[in-house]
């Protein structure tokens, strides 16, 4: 009985992130538009876009290989699995032990690996430029992320995300220097990983500065829909991650009953709203930087992560 309930909760969680992901993207766009004093597209526009793309034919480049057709599914699957292992409204997920935080980061790495390959498949220069920049950004963002994971793992004594979140919600955590550094680092990594301003602009096309959009330029129809959905999932994943680590209030502990569960869901939606508004505010108040400034930006994130880890190694009280 407990098993079935846990399984149902895990499934709900999977469907929740999947269902909310486009809404969250739409919400960020809407807030951004309002901040620019535009009306903006309706909140549900991403769903409409996805539905339209799904119904359209796939137009495949003449020399695209089988790999090009498989990759959208692989990217989507890896991102979805990673996203459903991050606690959203409840800490103790049924399958959270199957992949810890390092594995979740690596799953996102798999998704990126395949997407970068897709950029090279048709053999166009836009795809190449996107892929080569994406891997450059990743080569700095991933180690920064791993260092932040180290910090969190050393504070909580576990790399298991559910356990870390539980620890963060408990009063033992306190105010720590390393946590502060980790938070800053994680926000910077999240911005870079999701290709947001100032690293990349998700709203542009036909610009030599674009990264993610250049990589997926040859995709169309349902393939493009899946990739857009994966991007939305990745964004909501990072916001959920930030929320469950640094704002773990309202997360339902295991077996706390239905009211707590409802509270967890409400708290989660509230956290998403706050996170999305902050992201939109940040993006409207800053300009995109040149591609070769990105290493400096991410170098700072890496240094913050390394410093935080070092502090934890040197003393348990930081």
């Amino acid at each position: 009985m407990v098993l079935i309930r846990d399984f149902l909760i895990q499934c709900t969680e999977m469907l929740l992130v999947l269902g909310l992901a486009p809404l969250f993207t739409g919400f960020v766009r809407k807030v951004k538009a309002r901040l620019l004093r535009r009306q903006g597209a309706p909140l549900i526009q991403p769903y409409l876009d996805l539905a339209r793309l799904m119904r359209k034919d796939v137009v495949l480049a003449d020399n695209a290989s089988w790999l090009f057709r498989v990759i959208p599914y692989l990217v989507f699957a890896a991102t979805w699995v990673a996203a459903s292992l991050v606690p959203t409204f409840r800490t103790d997920l049924m399958f959270s032990w199957s992949a810890d935080l390092i594995a979740i980061i690596a799953l996102l790495g798999s998704a990126r690996f395949f997407l970068a390959l897709a950029g090279l498949d048709v053999g166009t220069s836009f795809g190449g430029i996107g892929s080569s920049r994406e891997v450059m950004i990743a080569s700095l963002a991933e180690p920064a992320m791993i260092m932040i994971v180290f910090t969190l793992a050393l504070i909580a004594g576990s790399t298991q995300l559910s356990n870390v979140a539980e620890f963060m919600a408990s009063p033992q955590v306190g105010l720590r220097v390393s946590l502060g550094l980790g938070l800053f680092g994680l926000v910077m990594v999240a911005i870079a990983e999701n290709g947001r301003i100032p690293i990349d602009n998700p709203a542009t096309h036909l610009e030599l500065t674009m990264v993610h959009e250049a990589m997926v330029l040859e995709y169309s129809g349902r393939h493009l829909a899946l990739i857009e959905l994966s991007a939305a999932l990745k964004l909501i994943l990072y916001v959920s991650l930030l929320a469950c680590l640094f704002a773990p209030w309202g997360l339902e502990a295991a077996g706390a009953g239905l009211p707590a569960l409802a509270l967890g869901v409400v708290a989660y939606v509230a956290k998403l709203a706050v996170g999305g508004s902050l992201l939109a505010l940040f993006e409207t108040s800053i300009a995109k930087m040149r591609v070769f400034r990105v290493p400096e930006f991410l170098g700072v994130a890496l240094m913050l992560g390394l410093l935080a880890t070092l502090l934890r190694f040197v003393s348990g009280s930081f």
């Binding site: 137009v59 480049a61 003449d62 599914y73």
Partner: peptide, 30 residues
Amino acid sequence: VFIIMSGSLAAMAIHRLASARLRRAPAWDC
């Protein structure tokens, strides 16, 4: 198993419910 399952689930759902059509064309490249 999760990756295989969710990948094939997505493929099946999309091919059944939406579209499975495909046509070839020259590369777009903006």
